[in-house]
Amino acid sequence: MFRDLSRPIETGMPTYPGDPDVTLAPDATHEEDGYATSELRTGTHAGTHVDAPRHTLPEGESIDERAVGEFAFDARLVDLRPLEPREAITAEELPEPNVLDPAVDLLVFRTGWAAHWGTDRYRDHPYLTAGAARRCQKLGVGVGLDTFGPDPTPPGSAKTTGPSRETEPEGTPAHDALLSDSLPIVENLCGLDGLPAGFRLYAFPLRLRGADGSPVRAVAEWEG
């Protein structure tokens, strides 16, 4: 069985605060030109996408320097629900090294925040603590998330109801920990409800020369 876990790329879609807006508009039309083409303007981290180490590490690999086979994953779903807005996900909530199948190379975290896509609340997603990121390093696994990313996102205009932001880490420590070991980060996944505990996840990026990330068509596959 297959399931698309990707966000549609469309004009005005949500983007991380400060990232470029996305527009998808006609360029040539059947009526005027006899054929159709479109113009797409987007950042490299719009919608469902994968981060390259260069995203937060100046000397890190770019997306086109990674072998294409590194974007086909043996994934394990980790259901963390219910979670509060901006709740910290600790190492204790992740699998222990001795119980995780050695074949697994991606943990997909279901936080429930996919339901808030398109609202200010989506910014108030849970995030990984430094200890959780180190656990992933020890496991040798990357992460997939139904959120903007593994680190906190600046809140929107709506009042934040979660824990005090004074306790949140600054910068991108979870990104840095994972990307420093070339562990993949797949962000803004959707459609995680009803997936089996184990599945294949394909998240092939565009071959963007020297880029720090790329939108992907994330697809889950499992035996029905």
Rank of each mutant, 00 (worst) to 15 (best):
D79K: 02
L83H: 01
P20T: 09
S38D: 05
S38C: 01
A25Y: 02
D21E: 15
T42L: 15
L77W: 00
D19A: 11
D51Y: 03
H30T: 10
T48C: 05
A52N: 02
A52T: 07
V22R: 04
T29W: 14
H49A: 13
D27T: 10
R54I: 10
L24P: 02
E32T: 00
E61M: 07
G34N: 11
L80R: 03
T44K: 03
A36E: 09
H45W: 04
P58Y: 03
A67G: 12
A72Q: 11
L24F: 15
Y35A: 14
G60H: 01
G69A: 10
G60D: 02
T44F: 14
V78F: 00
A52F: 00
A75R: 03
R81K: 08
A36C: 09
G18L: 00
V78H: 09
L24G: 06
H55K: 09
R66F: 05
A25P: 00
A25S: 13
P82T: 11
T29H: 10
H30W: 07
P20K: 11
F73L: 06
D33L: 13
F73G: 05
T48N: 02
P53H: 03
G69D: 09
L83N: 03
A25M: 04
H30D: 15
L24W: 15
G47M: 05
Y35N: 06
H55W: 10
A36P: 00
P82A: 07
E70L: 04
T44A: 12
G18K: 01
P58L: 05
G47N: 07
P85W: 15
V78I: 14
A46D: 08
T37H: 12
E61F: 02
A36L: 10
G43S: 08
R76P: 06
L77I: 09
A52K: 01
S38Q: 06
E32C: 04
T48D: 01
A46H: 04
A72K: 12
V50R: 05
H49K: 05
E39G: 12
T56D: 01
P17L: 12
V68K: 13
V68N: 07
G47F: 11
E32P: 02
E65L: 06
V50M: 07
S38E: 11
R54E: 10
